[in-house]
Amino acid sequence: MEAVMACWETEQSLQSLTGVSAGEGTGATMSDDDDGRDDQIDSDTANLFDGLDSMGFGPLIPTESERSLMERVRQELKHELKNGYKEKIVDIREEILRKRRAGKLPGDTTAALKAWWQSHSKWPYPTEEDKARLAQETGLQLKQINNWFINQRKRNWHSNPSSSTSSNAKRKRFS
Results as ranks from 00 to 15, higher is better:
Arg72Lys: 15
Trp157Gln: 00
Ile150Asp: 01
Ser119Leu: 07
Arg153Asn: 01
Val73Ala: 11
Ala115Lys: 15
Leu77Gly: 12
Arg153Ser: 01
Glu76Ile: 14
Gln136Ala: 15
Ser13Asn: 10
Ser167Met: 03
Trp116Ala: 04
Leu105Asn: 08
Arg93Glu: 12
Phe149Val: 04
Leu81Cys: 04
Phe49Glu: 00
Gln15Gly: 10
Gln15Trp: 09
Asn47Asp: 03
Leu134Glu: 03
Leu134Trp: 02
Glu66Tyr: 02
Thr45Ser: 14
Asp34His: 02
Leu97Phe: 15
Ser166Val: 01
Lys88His: 10
Thr138Cys: 06
Gly58Thr: 02
Asp50Cys: 05
Lys82His: 13
Thr110Glu: 13
Gly58Ser: 04
Ala46Gly: 04
Asp91Pro: 02
Leu81Pro: 02
Gly139Phe: 06
Val90Arg: 15
Thr165Ser: 10
Lys143Phe: 05
Glu11Gln: 15
Asn146Tyr: 01
Gln40Tyr: 01
Ser13Ile: 10
Arg155Tyr: 05
Leu105His: 08
Lys104His: 15
Ile61Tyr: 02
Leu81Lys: 03
Thr29Leu: 07
Asp91Arg: 01
Trp116Pro: 10
Glu9Pro: 01
Pro124Met: 08
Tyr85Pro: 04
Thr165Ile: 11
Val90Phe: 05
Gln12Ile: 04
Pro161His: 02
Trp148Ala: 12
Ile150Gly: 10
Arg133Glu: 14
Leu142Ala: 13
Ile92Tyr: 03
Phe49His: 06
Gly23Thr: 01
Val20Ser: 03
Thr109Pro: 07
Tyr125His: 13
Val20Ile: 12
Ala28His: 01
Glu66Pro: 10
Arg37Ser: 06
Ser121Gln: 12
Gln152Tyr: 00
Ser175Phe: 00
Tyr125Arg: 14
Asn146Trp: 06
Gly107Leu: 13
Pro62Arg: 13
Ser21His: 12
Glu137Lys: 11
Arg93Val: 14
Ile89Met: 12
Pro59Asn: 10
Asn156Met: 11
Asp38Trp: 00
Leu14Pro: 05
Asp33Cys: 10
Ser65Asp: 10
Thr165Lys: 12
Thr26His: 06
Ala3Ile: 06
Gly56His: 06
Ser43Glu: 11
Met55Asp: 14
